[in-house]
Design a protein around this nucleic acid. Sequence first.
DNA 1: TATCGTACTGAAAGCGCTTTCGATGCGCTG
DNA 2: CAGCGCATCGAAAGCGCTTTCAGTACGATA
Lengths: 343, 343
Amino acid sequence: MKRTTVRLQDVAELAGVSLASASRVLNANSPTYRGRGDLRERVLAAAAELGYEPNLHARALASATSNTIGLVVHDVSDAYFGLLSSSVVRAADKHDLLVTMVCTYRDPASELKYVKLLRAQRPRAIIMAASGYTQKAQYGPIMDELSKFEAAGGVVVSLAGGRGVGHRMVVGNKEGARSLAHALVELGHRTFAIAVGPTALVTVRDRVDGFRQGLADHGIEVAKDNLYPGDTSREAGMRVAEAIKSSPDRPTCVFGVFDVVAAGVVAGLQRLGVDVPGEVSVAGFADVPLAAQITPALTTVSIPLDLVGQQAVDLALTESAVPRTVSYQGNVIMRQSTAPPPA
Amino acid sequence: MKRTTVRLQDVAELAGVSLASASRVLNANSPTYRGRGDLRERVLAAAAELGYEPNLHARALASATSNTIGLVVHDVSDAYFGLLSSSVVRAADKHDLLVTMVCTYRDPASELKYVKLLRAQRPRAIIMAASGYTQKAQYGPIMDELSKFEAAGGVVVSLAGGRGVGHRMVVGNKEGARSLAHALVELGHRTFAIAVGPTALVTVRDRVDGFRQGLADHGIEVAKDNLYPGDTSREAGMRVAEAIKSSPDRPTCVFGVFDVVAAGVVAGLQRLGVDVPGEVSVAGFADVPLAAQITPALTTVSIPLDLVGQQAVDLALTESAVPRTVSYQGNVIMRQSTAPPPA
DNA sequence: TATCGTACTGAAAGCGCTTTCGATGCGCTG
DNA sequence: CAGCGCATCGAAAGCGCTTTCAGTACGATA
């Protein structure tokens, strides 16, 4: 089998110029460079004729820079990460960057493995949209790996956690949840339950802490029995609904740490014949499209994911050696799933 | 600034062995190779001590194989593509492959640009989950680019379109829509409207053709006025709802080519005070999670996206020179958004 | 003990590109 | 017309790795 890939060499030969000149033309290298006579045109024509496409690996190797950025999320099929990924990809596009995306499915071991793999790919930057574990045993090795990546000249952007490595983005989990709590207390609620989700995540901890803080601001506590850990699925929410329905002192309001879980709570309560929001109010967090589309529409805290993704890419391209922190506020969106508690 | 990245060379020196030996140890190269004495241990220890991570670009260049696959979708934040991407990433993980994902946002020009960029990255394979344009002017250049990729030894897997390049996957758009039509006719419906979506896409054309074919099987036609083109948004569906509400001969059943659009139709009708399914039935296509979560839950055609993604990766890894075609059937899922037409 | 075969080792040749470096041509000025 | 500076050019040196190719050590065989 004869060679079938087109090399810059081939382009140069067809154009009758040297490798170096061909490279210069195709890269618009120095700003003043134009090429003598029709050299430029000849190279371009040759490249087009051969269907030449540069080998990014060779280029990355020779120039020690790459045009990809790594993106680590929990799960793209989750609306939250889907929206975020989409905006990252879109922003990267503006800089002609390719995005290599990996999903960890909330497994620290696989996250570690992937960060290593990404590191091997020598991307310009790694955006950590997942991660953010509360346990040192889990985030420690990952941070070590990211430090090495930084030491080698890479940029790290963390959306949750971060722990002293790279730039940080704060997406208002704590403050947003606190505001949400205030709004719900103002509606008249005094007894709350929280569908907590996976407690190993910083995001979860922040939202729960923020919410409880908000309640504490009004002297309200959440009973231990009213904290329901689980995963991030709709089913988890439905199980919470069942537990609440048969709970001795039924809360009048349930906070689901993720919209999907909250939607599950709503569906579960409805199936059990509990009126939402007539008997029990339900609120979520994130404002994914689903929140507005269920009946009753879900009260939640919106996060400007498109801005976040864009900003993450901007930070990723920042050369600044000093780590920066960028914050976003979440906005409480009151919809029909919450109402004053029954009299 | 001194060099900060760790090279295999450094590992070799620290271990006191040659570059070649270090490479062999770290790649478990030939199946019989074990290394003499504690050579293996020394190399491994050195690599660990230095935090060595191989340079994938150099490796790709030297070995002429890469460990990435390219994935082209319309938009990851769309649930359909989110689920698909997730399953592709998951399947790729099993083979220790990295996925570079690009979103075209349904723009043929940007799709072309991305296929070129991906080609430059020399992935093992490119999975085209987007594309599938009906116009030659749009798909032609893309197919040319993919042909070149194939000629250079790459594998192409197309989920829609394909046109003679690479392996093809057929996800039952046509057949599924036809079965759906049959089911709706059986419910008693005779007059239909179709929220068509973007007509430039093969996927759309297949679903619409299949649906009309299914109606034709029963001697039913869809009036020109009852075909509503649009985009793939919820809002497009709501506009269709308005048009239908004021339509002189109102159809008793609406088929939305995408679940999201169908959900928009449902929401729009409800807002206008039209009972679904009492007065008008609505059906969608794809069975994204949203379909089951709105009220009334949406009748639709399910596509086994997890299997599709997995299979796509399997095909991507197929060495077989002869192009293969793999088919999946969609299943009609009857839910509460459809019922017999009003008497 | 001499000979052979096997399993290993290290030197060196690339992979396709970028980029430095010295050389070359050119239009000027004096 | 000599001499200067500038833009351009091609040769060649890597970038970090894999892999071929000799060569070496070692155990087994005669």
